[in-house]
Design a protein around this nucleic acid. Structure first.
Lengths: 192, 192
DNA sequence: ACTCATAATGGGCACACGGTCATTATCGGC
DNA sequence: GCCGATAATGACCGTGTGCCCATTATGAGT
């Protein structure tokens, strides 16, 4: 393997460039041309490392899903519940992740490509919900939630509201305390 | 006015055709060509009645927003709260409306066009949340909700979760009773 | 029956997309 | 210094988009 390092280098350069484009110009500007230009390489490079553009984006999504799941998975049970949940939502709904969700919605090809990995639903949102449900279930078993609390419903409610809140799609401005407010209002009925 | 009826006829035909395309083929198939073809008219007709294609879609969104607001506005205070809220979400998150939300996400032009009308956030979701908050506030004043319940937070939570639930973007299948489950779990802490 | 303002038509334009591939550049092994 | 496998280049292609506009059809008023 002559230039083994450079090979991975190009992959990472392209993925990082895609994030920058996504943040700067939005999901509609996320094209094969803009990404390769941002990365400072020619168009052909992308097709050497990825089958096609949707494959490239799918890899980007998978990377970010793994990050979000790790963030939630590393939550410490010693912290207050509301604190943990608010932080989990904050670390999941980063600007990049919100942009990726929109990109998946806007692209049929990307969506069907991800279906090979994720059975159904929107990636990131789906995974975040599952991770949160697992965390809440653990807290329930420890006794920090009522025994009859439904972790899945709680997680869905948190992810659904958090998503629109962080994306600024609901009501007024995404107030700094709005997230905490939502989290409290959702979990108050479930804490023991 | 020579053909006053026919003029409105063409507008309505196009808007109705757009809904059919949206339902049948999804938001990515919602193009000026597919809509005019579905309506059985030539491409030029659309540009006679609307400035451009985004203007046409904006009109479609505005129509549907008005319908959703009317549905929520006509809720009867005599019915059970959970019943009312579940029905409100069901009537707001129709397949057409869910498709329109995706269409707005996918189209920058449409988004900025709607900003002239809607100050911020995603149309339909934003308006539904505001309407729901107004309804919940009325119920609070009547005494069906705790005096310290926050109608805005409740409305946001319901809309956020309902949206992803009805779109099938969260967790497993959008179970028939899942909506009611979410509504109950959200409002249980607010009923007096 | 004729006129003519108005509406509808659809071929074609400019543009941007993802993707291809012959050509050129790179660089370690000898 | 040369060779040869591998990577990178960018002009080019087919497709589909929204939109324009010269042309044709329509139908009410006289």
């Amino acid at each position: 393997m002559p230039t083994g390092i450079a090979m991975h280098d190009a992959r990472e350069r392209l993925l990082a460039a895609a994030e920058r484009v996504l943040l700067r110009d939005g999901q509609n500007a996320l094209t094969s041309r803009s990404v390769t230009e941002e990365a400072g390489v020619s168009k052909g490079v992308l097709h050497r490392h990825f089958a096609d553009f949707d494959d490239f984006l799918a890899e980007l999504v998978r990377t970010r899903i793994a990050l979000a799941e790790n963030e939630i998975g590393s939550l410490q049970g010693s912290e207050p519940l509301v604190e943990n949940l608010a932080q989990a939502l904050t670390s999941v709904f980063t600007p990049v992740n919100l942009g990726l969700v929109k990109a998946v919605i806007a692209r049929d090809g990307l969506r069907s490509r991800l279906r090979e990995t994720t059975p159904q639903g929107l990636p990131i949102l789906n995974e975040a919900s599952a991770s949160l449900a697992a965390y809440l279930d653990a807290e329930r078993r420890v006794g920090r939630l009522k025994p009859d609390a439904d972790p899945r419903t709680l997680a869905m409610t948190l992810v659904g509201t958090g998503h629109l809140l962080f994306a600024g799609e609901l009501g007024g401005l995404p107030d700094e305390s709005a997230v905490r407010e939502v989290v409290e209002s959702v979990v108050v009925s479930a804490v023991s």
